[in-house]
């Protein structure tokens, strides 16, 4: 029989049903361990007075010496990601196996009995706080934008690898934050009749713009996670003197 082109679904079908869950657990687990390590056992990620790690922005002073200032910042993006509709799907599948995959074989492995399954009821209704984390995350992204502008001024205007990395990070984080499902609802998703309400056309346009970003929400969710991670690692390598921030302009 003829082969034909390999589609994404036929490509993923070649992996066992648990492969996706294991990958998600590995990446999110590694990021969590890394975050805990740098927050509790490493100094503030800042280099040269112009590169502040995104994990410490906005720079909130810690009232207790041994407590990292990141504690007062990270709960916002962390809460935003924990309650995000995409990450909910990812961790329900990967960590709770509810279900681990869509195949019938995988669904037979669900650990919860029908009596114990409650979906997003009971305590999980607190995921509805997502929209409030969105509001907080917009403020955090605004501070990251400010830090990115600062990154372009190492000593007067200049473009370095670090400043480009920070720019990439804020673009990816904006794509993730402003493409969120709650943002889509807020922008115009809740309106039923755009021609009937004041500013309806603007709300419709906003809804459409957010929908474009939202269409690739999974992409933004992962790449923005890696960009935050990468930016922090880069700053720490600079601090340790392992590399220098190469100036391009």
């Amino acid at each position: 029989m003829s082969g034909g082109t390999l589609s994404w679904s036929s490509f993923t079908a070649r992996f066992p049903w648990w492969a996706g869950s294991v990958t998600t657990v590995a990446i999110l687990g590694a990021f969590t361990i890394y975050s805990i390590f740098i927050v509790f056992f490493q100094p503030v990620g800042e280099y040269g007075g112009y590169l502040l790690s995104p994990m410490y922005s906005p720079p909130v002073p810690s009232p207790i010496d041994w407590l990292s200032p990141a504690i007062f910042v990270l709960w916002i993006p962390l809460g935003f990601r924990l309650t995000c509709y995409y990450y909910r799907k990812a961790y329900y599948r990967a960590f709770l196996w509810d279900p681990p995959n869509c195949s019938s074989k995988a669904q037979q492995r669900e650990p919860r009995s029908p009596e114990n399954y409650s979906g997003e009821r009971n305590l999980w209704v607190f995921n509805n706080v997502h929209r409030y984390f969105l509001y907080g995350s917009i403020i955090v992204v605004a501070f990251l934008l400010y830090e990115t502008i600062r990154a372009f001024f190492p000593d007067g205007f200049g473009i370095t690898i670090g400043s480009l990395l920070f720019l990439l990070n804020v673009v990816l984080l904006s794509g993730y934050t402003f493409g969120c499902h709650s943002m889509r609802h807020l922008a115009g998703g809740r309106v039923d009749c755009y021609s009937c309400v004041r500013g309806g056309n603007l709300r419709r346009k906003s809804f459409q713009w957010v929908s474009v970003l939202n269409g690739r929400h999974m992409f933004w969710a992962w790449v923005s996670l890696f960009s935050v991670w990468g930016a922090d690692v880069y700053v720490r390598l600079l601090m340790a003197g392992v590399i220098t921030d190469l100036r391009l302009v």
């Binding site: 909910r88 799907k89 329900y92 279900p99 869509c102 409650s118 997003e120 009821r121 499902h181």
Partner: peptide, 22 residues
């Protein structure tokens, strides 16, 4: 609707590509 935990299996199988979950 509270029982739905948005794991997107429905979207994956839709033959007319309705983005059911989103």
């Amino acid at each position: 609707i509270g029982y739905c935990n948005i794991t997107k299996c429905c979207t994956e199988v839709c033959p007319v590509n309705i983005k059911i979950t989103d």
